[in-house]
Simulated assay, not measured.
Amino acid sequence: MARPKSEEKRLHLLHAAAEAVAQRGVGAPTAMISTMAGVAEGTLFRYFPNKEALFNELYLYLFRHMCEALGEALALDQPLMQRAEGQWNAYIDWGLAHPTWIKAINQLTVTDILTAETRETEMSLFPDVGLVEASMKSELFEHLNPAFGDAMFIAIADATLRFAASEPERAAEYKLSGFKAHARIFLPNQD
């Protein structure tokens, strides 16, 4: 008889997968993830049928945590630009607090490994759908692969995170500058 699955072990596997993806991208082998989690590779496959399922679950796990932080900063009664800045700041703060997780989620965001179901769930989790809809209306991205817009967002956020982490005393300045760049690209004509 198979042993019951442990939620603690599943979470340990997800955390190890985040570390592996942050280090090696989606090419991180399951053997590496298992070793980092301190379990046999077969144990990983008791919890996740394959690497793609693991990475999709990892993405949603990290995305939920990120959205919780964004939700705490959400004030729907504010104008769009103020909400956008609040969400940007919460995203950067979350990334600074969770550098491994932000690297992993950014690696997974721009791959083809995420299923359509995962993408649908992702959209349902985001706390400010109006902000997402406004961003998607940017003429720069309207007829292109959505992954291009994701990659552009990640590039701006990554630069902001890198400089805010290296010069914490100037983090507020970097967040503001990063937000202004983000807003010019993703929220034009929203002044």
Rank of each mutant, 00 (worst) to 15 (best):
R46W: 14
R46E: 15
F45H: 14
D77E: 15
F48Y: 13
Y59D: 11
M81D: 02
L54P: 04
E57A: 14
E68W: 07
D77M: 06
A53H: 04
A73V: 00
F63E: 12
L60E: 13
Y61F: 14
Y61M: 03
A84N: 06
Y47D: 10
L60S: 06
L74D: 08
L54R: 02
E41H: 09
M66N: 03
E85D: 10
E41Q: 13
E57G: 15
L44K: 10
L76E: 08
F45I: 05
C67L: 03
E57N: 15
P49A: 01
E52M: 08
G86C: 00
L58V: 09
A53E: 11
G71M: 03
L44Q: 10
L58I: 13
A73E: 00
G86H: 00
A75S: 09
P79G: 02
E85C: 02
L44T: 10
N50Y: 09
C67T: 14
A69Q: 13
A40E: 14
E72T: 04
L80F: 06
T43S: 14
L54C: 10
E41R: 14
G42R: 12
L58R: 13
G42Q: 13
E41G: 11
K51C: 02
L74K: 10
A75H: 11
E52H: 12
E85Y: 12
P79Q: 01
M81N: 01
A73D: 00
P49V: 07
A69N: 05
L54H: 02
A53K: 05
E72V: 05
Y47G: 03
P79W: 07
F63G: 03
F45K: 06
F63M: 12
Y59W: 09
N50H: 10
L62W: 14
V39N: 00
G86S: 06
A40H: 15
Q78A: 08
E52Q: 15
F48R: 01
A75K: 10
F63K: 10
R64Y: 05
C67A: 08
L62Y: 15
M66V: 01
A73Q: 05
N50W: 09
Y61K: 05
L54N: 05
A75F: 04
L60M: 13
R46T: 15
G71R: 07
L76H: 01
V39W: 00
G42A: 14
N56M: 07
